[in-house]
């Protein structure tokens, strides 16, 4: 595990495209589909998840050598549950409207497979710094993905972005976009788009 700069940059960067959680790995579907009816909800969910992801990766990476492999999943789940509850309490105390909008989906971060996936797949095998970079990259990728979903759904569903009305009175909002069905439409299109782009990238002869 060479700990040079290039490697760290790579650990960070892979979360932004190569292993972009919702659209490339199709992981973390529950929040991606459920809470992205506006940018602010998407970003809040993304940040809450990133916080849990980062804390869990740090903790798991630190204790990776003392946890017996038979009980590692149980230990990780306890650790993850701790951070999720902290995030939930924090949102309820400081940002009650966001906490209300996200509802049960904050506690559900516990079962978000991205987090256990990173703990099990990366942090338990790697030292602290790469684990942090990994969590930051994946977390940022996840947050941006949710913000993108939220942006598309908000502009069509409400005619606004971040509650700022962009489309005038003439625009009759597409209610379907803020309903669950709209989440599936947007998600489908974005997965198709990422597949198309990655195929084109692979086909290009000088692609890296």
């Amino acid at each position: 595990m060479a700990n040079n700069n290039y490697n760290l940059w790579h650990e960070f960067k892979k979360g932004l495209w190569q292993e972009l959680p919702p659209f490339r790995l199709i992981l973390g579907m529950c929040p991606t589909l459920a809470v992205t009816n506006s940018v602010i909800n998407g970003v809040a969910m993304g940040l809450a998840t990133s916080f849990v992801l980062l804390s869990a990766n740090i903790s798991v990476s630190l204790i990776r050598k003392i946890v017996p492999s038979q009980v590692r999943i149980a230990t990780y789940v306890v650790v993850i549950a701790l951070y999720v509850t902290v995030a939930d309490l924090f949102l309820a105390a400081m940002f009650p409207p966001i906490s209300k909008a996200l509802g049960p989906y904050v506690p559900l971060i516990v079962v978000n497979c991205i987090i256990l996936g990173r703990a099990e797949g990366f942090a338990q095998k790697n030292p602290l710094t790469p684990s942090i970079m990994d969590a930051l990259g994946i977390g940022l990728g996840f947050t941006l993905s949710l913000a993108l979903m939220g942006g598309i759904r908000e502009i069509f569903g409400f005619g606004s972005i971040l509650d700022i009305k962009l489309l005038g009175e003439w625009f009759e909002p597409w209610i379907v976009m803020i309903l669950p069905a709209g989440a599936f439409f947007v998600f489908g299109f974005l997965v198709a788009l990422t597949n198309y782009l990655s195929k084109r990238k692979a086909a290009a002869p000088s692609g890296h």
């Binding site: 204790i63 009980v71 230990t75 650790v79 549950a81 509850t85 309490l89 309820a92 105390a93």
Partner: peptide, 20 residues
């Protein structure tokens, strides 16, 4: 390991709850 993890987590949670 499990007991310590649980106890530490519980302790942290109690503090956060106390504040929140």
């Amino acid at each position: 390991v499990l007991s310590i993890t649980g106890a530490v987590s519980g302790g942290i949670l109690a503090q956060v709850f106390h504040f929140a």
